[in-house]
Design a protein around this nucleic acid. Structure first.
Ligand SMILES: [Mg+2]
Length: 302
DNA sequence: GCGACAG
DNA sequence: ATCTTGTCGC
């Protein structure tokens, strides 16, 4: 799924003399939550003549940002015949374009999450756990369209590294909260296909079932490979704290683990109960982040 | 300005 | 997530 191209295709539908908004483009993608991602993608637009990203402004009528400076954005809008005063588009309601031709790609991906979430199993289905892998992805500002995916596998008993793998993949999907797997799963798979030692368990940087459709990236990976997985997040995506429980819509989907002063948020991904996930994560923590993920994080950045 | 949404 | 020297505390 090339969501970056989908965004550019929508932007090209905005006619000269009209403007639209980051939120309107996000709604045409299928989910308003993607509005910030629309801005980030337009920031990387290589050709503002072919893809007139300057016609996308903030929902309050202010012009928003432009990588070449907002002066050029205002100048381009004026050349289109748009009146701009004090950084605001005049007659906003009249020039606003929202008549996008779209098949709502994010709605399709949401349905895919709902379909996969029915396959998640939350009872312990673990054989003997000898090898534990951790996965994380890293990026760089100088090359923001390449993801670096790292897998580090350790032996549980000795906590020694037995394998390290790094893969690169062109990114065609921005970070959108609750859609993380569609960004990072491809580079995970690229690295996973190359490892020689089959892990018995994979820890993933991100959530498991602690997700609005119970399909965070750890569950997405677990179900796709039918392997036991655990999600380990450094920040809380959703839910409220009840003691150490993370509760969402009346259900305990995760737990805060105080491996250091600041907690991490653990949720089962697949073939695992919450309690077992927490027990295994505690066992794997030398510092705040469990070793396989911590080491994968370092490798992905290098 | 506030709230806030993994990475 | 990224941009990033040095400093402080444990
Ligand atoms: Mg990460």
């Amino acid at each position: 799924m090339d969501l970056i191209e989908e965004i550019y295709k929508l932007v090209r539908q905005v006619p000269r003399g009209r403007v639209s908004t980051y939120g309107a483009v996000a709604r045409a993608l299928g989910d308003i939550i993607a509005s910030r991602a629309v801005g980030l993608v337009l920031n990387l637009n290589p050709d503002p003549d072919r893809t007139p990203c300057y016609r996308i402004i903030a929902s309050d009528g202010s012009v928003g940002g432009f990588s070449r400076g907002i002066e050029e954005k205002i100048e381009r809008l004026r050349r289109d015949g748009i009146e701009v005063r004090n950084g605001k588009v005049m007659n906003f309601g009249k020039v606003f374009f929202d008549d996008f031709d779209t098949d709502y790609p994010l709605k399709r991906l949401r349905k895919e999450q709902m379909r996969l979430s029915r396959k998640v199993r939350l009872k312990d289905e673990l054989g003997e756990i000898r090898y534990v892998a951790g996965f994380d992805a890293g990026y760089s500002k100088s090359d923001p369209l390449t993801a670096h995916g790292a897998i580090v596998t350790i032996e549980l008993e000795s906590m020694e590294i037995v394998e390290e793998m790094i893969a690169r993949k062109r990114i065609r999907f921005p970070y959108i909260p609750t859609y993380l797997a569609f960004r990072e799963f491809p580079v995970f798979l690229e690295a996973y296909r190359r490892i020689k030692i089959q892990p018995d368990l994979i820890l993933v940087d991100g959530n498991g079932i602690l997700h609005p459709f119970k399909l965070g990236i750890a569950s997405h990976i677990g179900v796709s490979l039918d392997l036991p997985t655990i999600g380990v997040a450094k920040n809380l995506l959703m839910g409220e704290m009840r003691g150490e429980d993370v509760v969402y819509q009346g259900e305990v989907l995760g737990k805060a683990v105080y491996s250091s002063r600041k907690p991490i948020f653990v949720s089962p991904g697949h073939r695992m109960s919450l309690d077992t996930a927490v027990r295994l994560v505690r066992k794997l923590c030398r510092y705040r982040i469990p070793e396989p993920v911590r080491l994968a994080h370092i490798l992905a950045k290098s």
